[in-house]
Computed example of a mutant assay.
Amino acid sequence: MNLPDSDKKIYRDLDNGMISGVCAGVANYFSVEAVWVRGAAIFGLIFLSVPVLLAYVAAVVLLPRRVL
């Protein structure tokens, strides 16, 4: 896994996102494919529903949208 560069910013990627772009934005930040982040989110929702759901909603509210 590649560590993010210090000048990278995390954002919601609405163009490549399925629901609100959180997973796509996180995937871009960590330079991985979005399918892996989405899989981890689904896995987390199954086993740790409340914390993962709260974190996702917080990310939707707090993360800025990607501006091209």
Rank of each mutant, 00 (worst) to 15 (best):
V32L: 12
R38F: 11
A34H: 13
D5C: 04
V57H: 07
A34T: 14
I46L: 02
I19C: 11
S6R: 02
F47L: 11
V37Q: 09
F30N: 11
V37T: 11
V32D: 08
R66S: 04
K8T: 01
V26W: 11
L62T: 02
V61P: 04
V57Y: 06
S20K: 02
A24Y: 06
V67R: 10
K8I: 01
Y11W: 07
L54K: 09
A41I: 14
E33N: 07
V61F: 13
N28Y: 07
L3H: 03
D7G: 03
R12H: 07
V60K: 05
P51T: 13
V60E: 02
V57G: 02
V37F: 07
W36M: 12
D15R: 14
I10R: 02
I10A: 04
G21P: 08
V50N: 06
A27L: 05
L45M: 15
R66A: 04
L54C: 10
N16C: 01
V37A: 10
L48G: 10
W36E: 12
R65M: 01
L45V: 10
C23M: 11
P4S: 02
G21R: 11
D15K: 15
E33G: 09
L3A: 05
F47K: 09
F43D: 14
P4M: 00
I19M: 09
Y29M: 05
L54E: 09
Y11G: 03
L63M: 00
C23T: 07
G17E: 02
L45C: 08
S6A: 07
V57E: 01
V26D: 07
N28M: 10
M18P: 00
D15T: 13
V61E: 01
S6W: 09
R66E: 07
W36R: 15
A41P: 08
L3W: 07
R66G: 00
I42Y: 12
R12V: 02
S49D: 05
P51I: 11
R66W: 10
V57C: 02
V52T: 12
A58W: 11
V32I: 15
D15H: 10
S49T: 15
F43Y: 14
L3Q: 05
V32A: 06
S6V: 13
N28P: 01
G44E: 05
L54G: 02
V52E: 09
V37S: 13
M1V: 03
I46C: 03
I19N: 10
F43P: 00
L63K: 01
V60T: 04
R12T: 06
K8V: 11
R38C: 12
Y56Q: 03
I10Q: 02
S49P: 12
